[in-house]
Write a protein that binds this DNA or RNA. Structure first.
Length: 519
RNA sequence: GAGGCGCUAGCUCAAUGGUAGAGCAUUGGCCUUUUAAGCCAGUGGCUGUGGGUUCGAGUCCCACGCGCCUCACCA
């Protein structure tokens, strides 16, 4: 019977009544010879085709054109007049009004039409016309309900505003919330734009393992998800970065490689973090981190133009100009200056402890003050990084991106040492709108140095740093075969999508963000 | 993990501690140029869950669940 499906579910009386009624309509359609879940209908046109064909053409011109247009899509609104109705229909290209009239459809056709509900998927065919109000409209000579929607859509004016439901039922969100579809179209453009950009520069797209043996799960400071392969009896981790495998390919002579792929990090969830996210990492042999700054500027400008229509974007009310060049801001010098020291003093640790204590005393909030004073116990390089984060990061430019350069060695276990100052590495991070969007460096290719850095990581891990990297012996072996001088970069695709779609939360650029199960 | 805010009909929202309401949707009636169509008449509720205070709880208290924001961790 029609209501068995509805009765099984945990529904309120109103919703059950709606579903029951719609199931009865589906049965009524069957009785009239219409399969409420039919197929085999392929529309020959899109809503956008009619707009493109007629544009602002006057009514008389459209009337001269006998064109039989054929559309299919979801009915989003119905304005019914008894023997005629106007439907708002949407397909993947846009929306178009469909005008259904009893005298055009005939008695039988109109009986079938009367079983329509908002939300149903339909196909219609007929000539175009312009209504009295000037709206381009398809006048249906034939009309079919293709798929019966048995659940009601949210209210037509306010739509779905409960963000929890929007994320849990993204299929509804995409139907009723304006702009959601556009965000994901833009996200797709960003990814394809990056591919085109790198492909044009001779890069090869590759895929590396996402299941890592425990010793492989490095390339970043993060805690991994753990899993298990039954047949091999092998504990595995989901990758936290693609870095170490991609650089093995540089050793292998592929020279320019990139991978766009999913990364998993077993950490907190907030506006800028989802446990699984998408990164692009690319590596270019015979390039330096300076080369990558230029390349990054070109890429970001190109993507802004492609996705937003110009280099100046608007993010959360702030105009941001992505036109190169972006300022380079020295982590060491800025942190030192904020502490009242010279860069040399900060790096050598001279007066650093006192300066950190002074700075901590000058901060009202407890947490950052505590972090600053704790930093005095760390190495100068680590202390500089902490001081920069607390004292300088909030002061980075807001109306344009900024490269942070001059990273201390201790914070960068895979980066190449600077020839001019071995306490620093050739590394930069790109900050836009307060978000870290990219991280890049000239790669460390000295296997002995890499071995020492891994050993330091292992020591840190033993000392309690559960984000320190494991010792990847095979990666050192690869370096021993010789990796050409190389620069590499990673970009967070989700954050880039946030930036270019003006989205405040990473959940707004991930189709199905991770949420706790409902009670 | 900590703090703040929220959870009422399918959806969007009301309701001094005193009979849970409206709009949309839905159902029935009228209507062949509407744009959140209109007019008339109906239906629809375990107020997130569980305790407590009270003569009486959507409202006050406690616990729990889910979400959002801020912070911590992090990209």
């Amino acid at each position: 019977m029609a209501d068995t499906t509805a009765a099984k579910d945990d529904l309120g009386a109103t919703e059950r009544e709606i579903i029951t009624t719609r199931l009865e309509k589906a049965e009524a359609l069957r009785a009239l010879g219409v399969n409420p879940y039919g197929n085999g209908v392929s529309p020959r046109h899109l809503a956008a085709d009619l707009q493109a064909r007629y544009g602002e053409a006057p009514t008389e011109e459209i009337a001269r054109d006998p064109g039989a247009w054929s559309l299919a899509g979801r009915v989003l609104a119905v304005r019914s007049f008894g023997k005629a109705a106007f439907l708002k229909v949407r397909d993947r290209s846009g929306e178009l009004q469909v005008w259904v009239k009893k005298d055009k459809l005939g008695e039988a056709g109109f009986e079938r039409f009367k079983l329509l509900d908002v939300g149903d998927l339909i196909a219609a065919e007929g000539p175009a016309t312009r209504t009295k109000t000037g709206e381009l409209t398809l006048e249906a000579l034939s009309f079919t309900i293709l798929t019966k929607a048995t659940r009601p859509l949210p209210e037509k004016w306010h739509g779905l505003t409960d963000v929890e439901q929007r994320y849990r039922q993204r299929y509804v969100d995409l139907v009723v919330t304006p702009g959601v579809r556009e965000v994901f179209v833009k996200r797709a453009k960003i990814v394809s734009g990056i591919r085109r950009f790198l492909d044009a520069r001779g890069y090869l797209e590759v895929e590396t393992p996402t299941l890592h043996k425990p010793e492989e799960a490095g390339g970043a400071a993060a805690r991994p998800f753990e899993t298990h392969h039954n047949a091999l009896g092998l504990d595995l981790k989901l990758r936290i970065a693609t870095e170490l495998h991609l650089k093995r390919l540089i050793v292998g002579g592929l020279d320019r490689v990139y991978e766009i792929g999913r990364i998993w990090r077993n950490e907190g969830i907030d506006r800028r973090h989802n446990p699984e996210f998408t990164s692009i990492e690319f590596y270019q042999a015979y390039a330096t981190h300076d080369d990558l700054m230029t390349l990054t500027e070109e890429l970001f400008q190109a993507l802004a133009v492609e996705v937003s229509g110009g280099p100046v974007i608007s993010f959360q009310g702030q105009a941001i100009d992505l036109t190169p060049p972006y300022p380079r801001i020295s982590m060491v010098l800025e942190a030192a200056r904020a502490l009242g020291l010279s860069g040399e003093q900060a790096l050598s640790g001279a007066g650093l402890g006192e300066a950190l204590a002074r700075a901590a005393a000058g901060i009202a909030e407890k947490e950052p003050a505590w972090k600053l004073s704790e930093a005095a116990k760390k190495s100068p390089g680590e202390a500089i990084a902490v001081a920069f984060e607390i004292l300088c990061e909030p002061k980075l430019p807001v109306d344009r991106p900024a490269f942070v350069v001059d990273f201390p060695l201790e914070t960068s276990p895979l980066s190449r040492r600077r020839d001019a100052d071995p306490r620093l590495v050739d590394r930069f991070e790109l900050y836009v709108a307060g978000m870290e969007l990219a991280n890049a460096f000239s790669e460390l290719n000295d296997p002995a140095d890499q071995r020492a850095r891994f050993e330091a990581q292992v020591k840190a891990k033993v000392a309690g740093d559960d984000e320190a990297m494991p010792f990847d012996e095979d990666y050192v072996r690869a370096l021993e075969h010789g990796m050409p001088p190389t620069a590499g970069e990673g970009i967070g695709i989700d954050r880039l999508a946030m930036l270019l779609t003006d989205s405040a939360s990473i959940r707004d650029v991930i189709l199905f963000p991770l949420l706790k199960p409902q009670a």
